[in-house]
């Protein structure tokens, strides 16, 4: 009787020990978060009517999401030639002719966080009497590039 009691007690202790070991189990979880990015542009960008010899400025709003540093380039694309001179203001405050080639406007921008980063890009269109009257439509393209 005494022997069977001790056997039962030993079994119970072993079971309790095993349960304690299970409760203390630790699982290592591994995950790799990739560098990723996204951009959202306004729908349309309209300068409106402008007189010859006049300059007009408009600011475009963009939103960028990125979890690492990034740069933003602007260029004009498409078959239609831009009337007058189209310039974009970079982060130093310098106006650059954007019709001729791609321009770097923002650089070394830090990771945006989950809300993204709203950026404002000022454009300036300067016309002259060399530009024939009419409605012009041309396309602007933004390229987000990771900073090296």
């Amino acid at each position: 009787m005494k022997k069977s009691f001790f056997v039962a007690l030993s079994l119970m202790l072993m079971l309790l020990g095993a349960a304690a070991v299970q409760a203390a189990a630790v699982i290592t979880v591994q995950v790799e978060i990739l560098g990723g990015f996204s951009i959202d542009c306004s729908d349309l960008f309209i300068f409106g009517a402008v007189m010859p010899g006049q300059s007009i400025e408009e600011t475009l709003e963009l939103k960028v999401w990125s979890n690492r540093a990034w740069d933003l380039y602007v260029s004009c694309i498409g078959p239609v030639e831009v009337p007058g001179t189209l310039e974009v203001e970079d982060q130093r405050g310098l106006w650059q002719d954007v019709a001729s080639s791609s321009r770097l406007v923002l650089w070394d921008q830090t990771a945006t966080g989950s809300e993204g980063s709203v950026v404002h890009i000022p454009f300036r269109l300067s016309t002259s009497y060399a530009d024939a009257p009419g409605e012009y439509e041309f396309q602007i393209e933004f390229t987000v590039v990771p900073s090296l």
């Binding site: 990015f37 996204s38 951009i39 542009c41 306004s42 729908d43 349309l44 960008f45 475009l60 694309i77 396309q139 602007i140 393209e141 933004f142 390229t143 987000v144 590039v145 990771p146 090296l148």
Partner: peptide, 19 residues
Amino acid sequence: AALLIKPRQNGLHSRLAVL
């Protein structure tokens, strides 16, 4: 090299460049 990923859309255009 850069892989340029461009959604087709009306209005303004954007691209994402994977290096």
